[in-house]
């Protein structure tokens, strides 16, 4: 088992260029090839060290895959490769318009249960958030490709807000569905 894997960045693991846009189908194919090579099931007859290595290798491959699969975590990883850590953001200063929008969204989320058809309102919110996420992703891509890292970081911070809102919409939808049954 080669240990090159552990010296590579996530893009290199799958043989992909380091970039915002990736070929998801190529990544999936490469993911399966790597799993076929390194999965612990391939070393079921091996010694303890081999199976431990296999577990570590597939854990790494899985982390890489999960990170690159989602556009936001992929963007964060791109900045991390440039030395900018966005995983523990403490800076909450942001443009006022965006924050206002977010607060309004929170309020309507809190009141969604009183609506006549809360599930379709939630569906509408989800699709709006998806659009917003896409726009921010485009902004990120521009900033990143122009090497404007501070602006790129700002986009990520906004996307983290959107992701939180998306999760909340999802959670409330699930709760409502539970109650309806």
């Amino acid at each position: 088992m080669s240990d090159d894997l552990f010296a590579q960045n996530y893009f290199e693991i799958f043989g992909l260029p380091v970039s915002v846009d990736i070929d998801v189908a190529a990544m999936s194919a490469s993911y399966h090839e790597l799993q076929k090579k390194y999965h612990p099931d391939r070393f079921a007859n091996g010694d303890e060290q081999q199976s431990r290595l296999a577990m570590q290798a597939t854990s790494l491959i899985n982390s890489a895959f999960e990170t690159l699969k989602s556009p936001l975590s992929r963007a964060q990883y791109l900045l991390k490769l440039k030395g900018v850590d966005t995983s523990t953001e403490t800076d909450t200063t942001m443009d006022g318009a965006f924050l206002m929008e977010q607060m309004e969204l929170r309020e309507s989320l809190e009141n969604v249960r009183q609506q006549a058809d809360p599930l379709s309102t939630l569906d509408k919110m989800a699709s709006d958030l998806k659009k917003q996420m896409k726009q921010l992703m485009n902004q990120f891509q521009q900033s990143y490709e122009n090497n404007e890292l501070e602006a790129a970081r700002e986009s990520i911070r906004k996307m983290q807000f959107i992701l939180k809102a998306q999760n909340e919409v999802k959670q409330i939808s699930e709760q409502l569905e539970d109650e309806m049954l």
């Binding site: 399966h32 799993q35 076929k36 999965h39 099931d41 079921a44 007859n45």
Partner: peptide, 18 residues
């Protein structure tokens, strides 16, 4: 089928469970 593969009876097998 999985046990047979893990026991090494199917060394050229393509099967993989993720």
């Amino acid at each position: 089928i999985q046990a047979n593969a893990l026991a090494g009876n199917d060394p050229d097998g393509e099967m993989l469970l993720l």
